[in-house]
Amino acid sequence: MRDTQPIGKRDEMKQSMCIVGCGGYARIVLDDIYDMTDEFDFYFASRDIDKARQYSEDYGGAGYFGDYEEAAADPRVQSMYFFTPHDMHLDNVNLAARHGKHVLMEKPIARTVAEASAMVESARDGGIKLMIAENYRFLNTVDRAMEIMNAEGAENPIGDLRLIEMVVEGFSSPGEWRANLDRNGGGVFIDGGIHFVDIVVNVGGFPELVHAIQPPQLYPNVEGEDGILVTAALPGGAACVINFSRAIPVQSLRQVVKFTGSKGRISFDPRASELTIDTPDGQSTVEVQAVRRGVRGMVSEFRRSIEENREPVMSGYEGTKDLAVVLAAYESMRTGESVRLSLPER
């Protein structure tokens, strides 16, 4: 390990987090959180030590490692944020648990419910916190929409929830390990569509029934699906439709979420700073504070869960629920039959 910060100068109130897996998506997240130096000292680990060194230099890191085991064993590191392929997640948690390091794991939690359950058990046995890095759980647009829909009487212009609609359209072929069915655990739905599954579970509850179909494949190099249409029956009778695709030949990514109730509709781009309320009496706009894709709030919640010794909001079990919905959609897509769901065991 190369340490670039003297031990005596560390702020005892901070936590030390090691970023594990210095790839392209890690850089996107770091661009949002690198300045959270009042909360964290950042370390970096990669199997390519030159890459770990470069990331540490680029983001003012406290040190870097050329080996995951070395990072996990270092007493300076308190937690590990894994940006690794999905087929490595179980081994990653087992490694961290052996060394008593808390884990923030990029979504999805795993490729199968069995893997996810093993990860939760490993974290429990190791006495560590396991949080899934589902940043859409921390978006102000979603939180504000839920506040509006949960308000009483005239303060709620939407009424009882009847329908959730989501359209996500982009034009980008998955590359490298994400194009491999076994390593990724599926196609674009398990990797990106799971964000929107989490919104459904968070707002409408865990689906009771799922049906899915796959449009014709556009990208021949992608072993999993490059698009999917999912319908679901939610608790209380509400319905859900998710149209998620990375194979729509358009210039820019489009994300639209709509919640329709008995009195009106609320719609928004989850990443934006406003929501539109539409009722028979007219339209209005509600502004919210932009939150850099929810990543900062997500990382702060992870830190607080460690400090307060409690389950994080986006726990391993919450991640397992999202995964179970994705896998039910895959089963339906494969068989042509609707799939009835039950909550995963804790």
Rank of each mutant, 00 (worst) to 15 (best):
M1P: 11
C18M: 10
G24V: 14
V29W: 12
D31R: 09
D32F: 11
D32I: 03
D50V: 01
D50S: 12
Q54C: 02
A62N: 11
F65Q: 03
D74S: 05
Q78T: 02
F83H: 09
H89M: 06
D91N: 15
H102E: 08
M105Y: 03
K107A: 00
A110Y: 10
V113I: 10
A118L: 13
M119R: 08
R124G: 02
D125Y: 09
M131T: 06
F138W: 13
V142H: 04
M146D: 03
A151E: 05
N156L: 01
L161R: 01
E165F: 04
V167A: 13
V167L: 14
V168L: 08
G170F: 06
S173Y: 11
E176D: 15
A179Q: 11
D191A: 13
H195Q: 12
H195P: 01
D198H: 15
F206I: 03
P215F: 13
V222E: 12
G227F: 01
T231F: 08
A232M: 15
A238F: 13
C240M: 13
V241W: 08
I242C: 04
N243C: 09
S245F: 07
I248L: 04
T260N: 10
R265Y: 09
S267Q: 13
P270Q: 11
R271A: 11
T279Q: 03
P280Q: 12
D281Y: 14
V286R: 08
V288C: 02
Q289Y: 07
R303M: 02
R303A: 00
E307A: 15
N309V: 15
E311N: 14
T320E: 09
D322R: 08
L323S: 06
Y330P: 01
M333Y: 04
L343N: 11
